[in-house]
Design a protein around this nucleic acid. Sequence first.
DNA 1: CTTACTGTAATAATTGTATTTACAGTAAAG
DNA 2: CTTTACTGTAAATACAATTATTACAGTAAG
Lengths: 135, 135
Amino acid sequence: MTSDFNIAVHAVLYLYHHPGSSTSLQLSESICTNPARIRKVLLLLKKAGIVEAKEGAGKSGYQFKGTRRMKLSTIAEAVGTDFTGSSWISGKDNHTCPIAENMPEIMNDIYDDMNQACLKELSKISIHDIAIKIF
Amino acid sequence: MTSDFNIAVHAVLYLYHHPGSSTSLQLSESICTNPARIRKVLLLLKKAGIVEAKEGAGKSGYQFKGTRRMKLSTIAEAVGTDFTGSSWISGKDNHTCPIAENMPEIMNDIYDDMNQACLKELSKISIHDIAIKIF
DNA sequence: CTTACTGTAATAATTGTATTTACAGTAAAG
DNA sequence: CTTTACTGTAAATACAATTATTACAGTAAG
């Protein structure tokens, strides 16, 4: 699991709290990673309409385009994070044992169910809920 | 995320379907990994009372000690898998920005909530439910 | 046309996960 | 009582996934 969702939530909170535009450098200082990674994640938020990105000199940077009621599930869907799952799955290479044969599909179904459960959990939390915790 | 839970579910299904004892070598052939890894995971299931392990020559190996109603959440708790979470967490090293300062706790709380949601989802599925899918 | 940014990609460094190998411990079987 | 067939456990190694670094083309304000 990557930390893209973590970065996205942190960035949205930062932009929510800083009206006007912020650069990937400013975000990277709060988030503690490099600007290139920030830009890669924020590009996904931009495509989902959650942030606006302006290029060029002077007023360029990122701005939050959502409401205080935006749910974390919306952010998770925008970055497309799979919370659960694994590239290693048991039984893949064994086609003689019926259990082995079926395990890949079974495990992927379970991981999918859990991912849905995670998203449902995140749909209960808004960025404003988190902002309240901080300030 | 490791595949310990995957291995544990596969092993329990195998033992559920093969009465009598099975060795870590037999399990490793169905699961497609090495016996040492199997033994490490099954040790956790043994400590939780889900399987019985017999040592020595002849009749040694593993046997399932639960019922058909055993839930996948019980297996997950036995192996102690964290389904969601990340060692990399934003803001760790920045103690000047209030958002950065609070992100580690916020993210860990979110991951904990999601883990609980995953366990709740797994509590709806029994090993017998899965066995039905296979046979 | 320079400047301050974003968008994007390739490569390197780091960390996490699984494999391999090895051996001490245990109890059944001869 | 010794061999045998296993489990329990711990290194060390190999491999895969994640993050960091570097670089540069594209864009629009000044």
